[in-house]
């Protein structure tokens, strides 16, 4: 089981009517790696995330999470995924702790077991001292950190983050990116969707997605070659200045 990739996407396609949003997408993530799903806006990243979290399903292709087929055994697969959606999914008028408890219960955790895991997750993101605050009182960076902490409560093997730094200032963006890289360093497999190359370290795995196709999978350093990652990315996708924003 441990030899299997943490996340394996094989020949996945999905169409919205006549438009093909994903076309024969395949990639595999080894365990304990930070992998960036890099693509310009409209590349199909959010569609792929909807498939990975089973908000959408497709008949074409398979997705396996820690060896569990998402179509055949969705509950086992979903239990091993932690998700941070692009759009915030917090109850603003409830405290951080209540939000965490709600999520823990959705994953079947309650009582002391939930409390222990929630404390540990908040500690990992340096958010424990905020547990009693209402989410509305937190700034954007702290809300995001809270969402990441929440996604870790049920000890997932794979953490999916869909453009988690959207709308954050530079300092918060850098801090969150560093935190998640650290989580990958501790053994978590991370899939981080982004169109911003400065969030990617040279050693990170990168899957370049463009117009529903996987153009390349390699480390950022390999993709960059002798140049920079941004130049390589623009050359591959024909993008302009967005990647550097």
């Amino acid at each position: 089981m441990t030899d299997q990739p943490a996340l394996c996407v094989s020949h996945v396609s999905l169409s919205y009517g006549p438009k093909k949003a994903l076309d024969d997408v395949s990639f595999a993530l080894p365990r304990g790696r930070f992998c960036a799903l890099l693509g310009p806006n409209g590349a199909g990243k959010s569609t792929l995330f909807s498939l990975l979290t089973r908000l959408l399903v497709t008949r074409e292709g398979t997705i396996r999470v820690a060896g569990h087929d998402l179509a055949k055994n969705p509950r086992a697969a979903l239990a091993r995924i932690g998700v941070v959606f692009q759009q915030p999914t917090l109850d603003l008028d409830m405290t951080v702790m209540r939000n965490m408890r709600y999520f823990a219960a959705l994953h079947g955790l309650s009582g002391r077991a939930a409390a222990t895991r929630i404390d540990a997750s908040l500690d990992r993101l340096n958010m424990r001292e905020r547990a009693g605050e209402k989410v509305r009182a937190l700034n954007g960076g702290h809300r995001r950190r809270m969402e990441i902490a929440r996604a870790l409560v049920h000890s997932p093997e794979v953490l999916l983050l869909d453009e988690p730094t959207v709308g954050l200032d530079t300092a918060a963006r850098r801090s969150i990116t560093a935190h998640v890289h650290q989580l990958a360093g501790e053994g978590l497999t991370v899939l981080w969707a982004t169109h911003l190359v400065d969030e990617i370290d040279p050693a990170d795995e990168v899957v370049v997605l463009h117009r529903g196709h996987v153009l390349k999978q390699a480390t950022a350093a390999e993709i960059a070659g002798n140049g920079t990652l941004i130049d390589a990315f623009i050359a591959m996708t024909g993008g302009k200045d967005e990647a550097a924003a």
């Binding site: 979290t53 089973r54 509950r75 086992a76 959606f85 759009q87 999914t89 999520f103 959705l106």
Partner: peptide, 18 residues
């Protein structure tokens, strides 16, 4: 619209139960 439905539906409990 606010996204919290996504959180609910990605829980590993059966959707009918949720």
């Amino acid at each position: 619209e606010m996204g919290s439905m996504r959180l609910l539906l990605t829980s590993p409990r059966p959707r009918w139960w949720l």
